[in-house]
Amino acid sequence: MNVYLVHKLCRRVLHDRQFRKLILEKPEAAVSSMPFSDDERAVLLAGDVARLHREGSSAFLLLILCRFEVFGLKLPIFNRRMRTGSSE
């Protein structure tokens, strides 16, 4: 898992308004604009924050995805996945 790239994506959601607009409207296009592997892209698009965190991503930065509800990560979903460690 390219954790640094995941962190860069989270930071761009907060700091890059155009990228935020793109990722909310066309998440696949936004994720594909960064050099993620196929597996990383799938994990991101599924909003599997539990796995991202398990593999080293910062919960603090992942919370940015929840703040803007990227990948459908409304707070109850984000919170449940982080607390249980599952993708459900």
């Binding site: 965190h53 919960a59 603090f60 919370l63 929840c66 707070l75 919170n79 982080m82 607390r83």
Partner: peptide, 13 residues
């Protein structure tokens, strides 16, 4: 303090 992580309270950040 835990922000966003597994030890966040239920339904909270």
């Amino acid at each position: 303090l835990e922000i966003g992580g597994p030890r966040a309270d239920l339904g909270k950040t």
